[in-house]
Design a protein around this nucleic acid. Structure first.
Ligand SMILES: NC(=O)c1ccc[n+]([C@@H]2O[C@H](COP(=O)([O-])OP(=O)(O)OC[C@H]3O[C@@H](n4cnc5c(N)ncnc54)[C@H](O)[C@@H]3O)[C@@H](O)[C@H]2O)c1
Ligand SMILES: NC(=O)c1ccc[n+]([C@@H]2O[C@H](COP(=O)([O-])OP(=O)(O)OC[C@H]3O[C@@H](n4cnc5c(N)ncnc54)[C@H](O)[C@@H]3O)[C@@H](O)[C@H]2O)c1
Lengths: 213, 213
DNA sequence: CTTGGCTTGTGAATACTTTCACAAGCCAGA
DNA sequence: TCTGGCTTGTGAAAGTATTCACAAGCCAAG
């Protein structure tokens, strides 16, 4: 019954979903593939292909029902529920993430935080109490943590990932600029800020090289 | 003379470069495509294809010269220099970014910061003085800002992007979960944390649906 | 100098994604 | 009920990216 949905399609589905939720709040009932496309930066054909992957619910001549489509995409992406998230490394970026309200609005609740620095442990930050990393196993189990975010220095990230996967975390989002290979079928995604800047550096440089065209 | 290098290749080049710099510090002189591949999460054939895009410098039977290859990739990506970066929106994430030393180590120096909140303006944070957004044009020009990072609330991000491109910024890295379309040939990359979490949500959900295989 | 082990560089093959283009279908209005 | 305008769903085509597989080349050792 399940089709494999490619990574790039999943990303676009997320974007469509964000738009659809906005439309729903505004009371819009129908939306066409080209409207969705405009705001997600895709083409209308792309949108229709994406949506047709899971026997689709559009109405020829009219468009898609906002309500139904929102539900379907939430179902596919697993977003009709709230995920329990842990944060490891309550430093500069970790603290910012703890205060990121958007996460909860979109279905990700931070229920635990870990650090190794004695001055961080025990403190309550944005409503979450920081536990010592040594207690990761018990806390993850007790609070039912499903996804972890790593925001520790790059050198420690791989070992932290191992601890997390052994503690039973199901997926990891890594902010440290270190490659972490999939451990024991726990998927890992890395967000690397500097990598993105380097991509922009390439664009600026190659453009300059080819005479600004 | 210039070949178009695809986005995914550019990303991998960044990863190779990071590894190469590490090897250089450790005094390693030669590296094979399979060693590079291991740590970048690619295959050796992929590495060789990537490197052969720009008439390559490998030695059959031995591998690639770490030093020469580092230089070549830095040249291609435009990383043999320091880029001047501005940060707009000195809130939770913006402050964390100002304190992110790794950026400078990798060739991106934050030379200006902007906000609209009166209590932020004029303060010096991690060595950078916060200017009012209204002065963006003069400050960008004066300090020679080439790349800007947007860390303002999502609703204001698009208008900030317009101001930045009009002020002469060459590229934008956007942290707000809003699509910003390319304005006037200024490339924009968006880093969307929640989108990444949603991708993980999909993986966990689809796996569960298909019986953990 | 020759052999053997190893690694690059690259066409060809495969796999994956996106775009095209149009029949099929829906609805509003006459 | 019929017509015309509009939008979906989808094969087929085009475009990209990755993997395969092997000749070409290098070096060290004998
Ligand atoms: N600061 C940023 O804006 C930024 C942006 C993108 C990525 N990053 C990355 O995020 C990571 C953290 O950066 P930061 O600037 O917040 O650094 P930081 O030094 O402010 O914070 C690191 C925190 O991790 C804790 N820590 C260290 N080892 C640990 C371990 N083994 N287990 C648990 N906690 C541990 C430290 O006690 C500290 O609180 C780094 O990998 C950095 O490259 C930072
Ligand atoms: N907090 C996080 O960890 C986090 C993570 C990822 C993405 N983001 C995104 O980054 C953005 C900022 O988030 P935050 O948590 O730092 O919010 P914040 O409210 O702490 O900071 C926003 C800052 O932007 C300033 N600002 C508002 N409008 C502005 C304008 N037009 N020009 C310049 N400055 C302006 C505000 O004065 C404030 O200082 C949001 O779009 C958020 O979705 C935040």
């Amino acid at each position: 019954m399940s089709v494999r949905i490619s990574d790039s399609t999943v990303r676009r589905l997320s974007l469509y979903l964000r738009m659809l939720r906005g439309l729903r709040v505004r009371g819009v009932e129908l939306v066409s593939s080209s409207e969705l496309a405009d705001r997600a930066g895709a083409t209308s054909a792309q949108v229709r292909k994406d949506l047709s992957l899971f026997g689709s619910c559009g109405k020829r001549g009219r468009g898609y029902e906002v309500d139904a489509l929102t539900g379907t995409i939430e179902e596919i992406l697993g977003l009709s529920r709230v995920w329990r998230v842990a944060l490891v490394g309550v430093g500069k970026i970790g603290t910012a993430l703890l205060g990121y309200e958007d996460m909860l609005d979109r279905g990700f609740r931070v229920v635990a935080a870990f650090d190794i620095a004695p001055d961080k442990i025990g403190r309550e930050i944005f409503g979450v109490t920081v536990s010592p990393l040594s207690e990761v196993e018990s806390v993850v189990c007790e609070k039912g943590v499903e996804i972890a975010i790593i925001a520790t220095p790059p050198a420690t990230a791989p070992e932290v990932a191992v601890m997390l996967s052994e503690a039973g975390v199901g997926a990891i989002l890594n902010f440290a600029p270190t490659r972490i290979s999939e451990i024991d079928y726990v998927p890992v995604r890395t967000v690397d800020l500097v990598l993105e800047l380097e991509g922009l550096s390439y664009l600026l440089t190659s453009r300059r090289r080819n005479g600004d065209d």
